[in-house]
Computed example of a mutant assay.
Amino acid sequence: MLVSSGLTAGRPAFAADSHRTQRAARRTARSIAVRAQKEEAAKGWKFDGSMQRWVRDDRFAGKSLTTVQPLSGTAYTVWPVMWDYLNSKGLKQVEEEEALAMVNKGAVVVDVRLASDYKNEHIAGAISVPMFRETAGNEGWDKVKRFVMGSLAMKATERDPDFLANMEKAIKNKRQQIIVACAVGGTLETVVRVASTGKSAKDPDRSFGRETRSLKACYELMQAGYTNVVHLKGGLSNWRYNGYPTESS
């Protein structure tokens, strides 16, 4: 007669129980994370025109805008929706040293600034695929936009409808590791480190991180099926400031 020795498939019973407990704990943690994500996504937001930023406002939960049709240019997804998506997908954000190490292993830096800005200066080896272009239309609001921005010594711009098509020409393999960069980078983080205490605290100015063109480009690329997208957190400005190589063309 075989007497039980406390082994289960060659493994002690307590070890099998431990693994089952760990798997259950992981399932529970994933369930909680998914529920928290859905609850976060269900909250509302609005655009604060006086401060020119998106702010959390749960009075608009379930009623907040998800797309906007500007008076000049094409419709676009609002930033809070992009922010939520990028967080849910775990977008990797890197600083200069890590980005350079990735480039040395075959990653490609994609500069999404205006073509003219790229020509003046860009990260050494980066390719140019602008997400925006100078306003091309000649309708009434296009002209108003050019006039207003020109009076501020700035360029009137709009989303480039050929952004994804141009990306497909430049990067033919959607599994290629891409490091997306703009002028200032931006972040998904909603907290800042308090210098006096060294602790992190919620930043009311960052309800949805810090919105930039490179983060918006990351959203569009990931939506289009690019599977290895990375974001350069400090953009060209930090890259240059910290002494990493740049060039012009």
Rank of each mutant, 00 (worst) to 15 (best):
M1A: 11
L2D: 03
V3H: 09
S4N: 11
S4H: 09
S5A: 14
L7E: 08
G10E: 06
R11F: 08
P12A: 09
A13D: 13
F14I: 08
F14S: 09
A15P: 00
Q22K: 14
Q22M: 15
R23M: 13
R23P: 01
A24M: 14
A25K: 15
R26I: 12
R26K: 15
R27H: 15
I32S: 13
A33Q: 15
A36Q: 13
G44Y: 06
W45Y: 12
W45K: 01
D48P: 00
M51N: 06
G62Y: 02
G62M: 02
T66E: 11
T67C: 07
V68Y: 12
V68M: 13
Q69A: 11
L71E: 13
L71H: 10
L71W: 11
T77L: 08
W79Q: 06
W83G: 07
Y85G: 01
L86H: 11
L86C: 10
N87K: 15
S88W: 09
G90V: 02
V94D: 04
E95P: 03
E96G: 14
E97D: 13
A99T: 04
L100D: 08
A101E: 12
A101V: 04
M102E: 07
V103L: 10
N104P: 04
K105A: 13
G106K: 10
A107W: 07
V108A: 08
V109M: 07
D111G: 03
S116G: 01
S116C: 04
Y118P: 03
Y118T: 00
K119R: 12
I123R: 06
I127C: 10
S128K: 03
V129E: 05
P130Q: 05
M131V: 08
M131C: 01
R133C: 12
E134H: 11
A136M: 11
G137M: 13
G140I: 05
W141M: 15
K143C: 10
K145N: 14
K145E: 15
M149F: 15
M149G: 02
S151W: 10
L152S: 05
A153D: 14
A153S: 14
K155L: 09
A156S: 13
D162G: 05
K169P: 01
A170M: 09
K174M: 04
Q177I: 02
I179K: 11
V180R: 07
A181K: 03
G185M: 03
T187N: 03
L188R: 08
E189F: 09
T190N: 02
V192G: 02
R193K: 15
R193F: 00
A195F: 06
A195D: 13
G198D: 05
K202H: 00
D203S: 10
P204C: 00
P204M: 01
D205S: 04
S207R: 00
G209L: 04
G209W: 05
G209I: 00
E211L: 07
E211P: 00
T212K: 08
R213W: 06
K216P: 00
K216G: 08
C218P: 06
Y219F: 15
Y219N: 03
E220T: 04
L221H: 05
Q223H: 02
A224K: 12
G225I: 03
G225E: 05
Y226P: 05
T227M: 10
N228Q: 08
V230G: 04
K233H: 07
G234Y: 07
G234V: 00
G234I: 01
N238I: 00
N238C: 03
W239E: 09
W239S: 02
Y241I: 01
N242H: 13
G243D: 05
E247M: 14
S248Q: 10
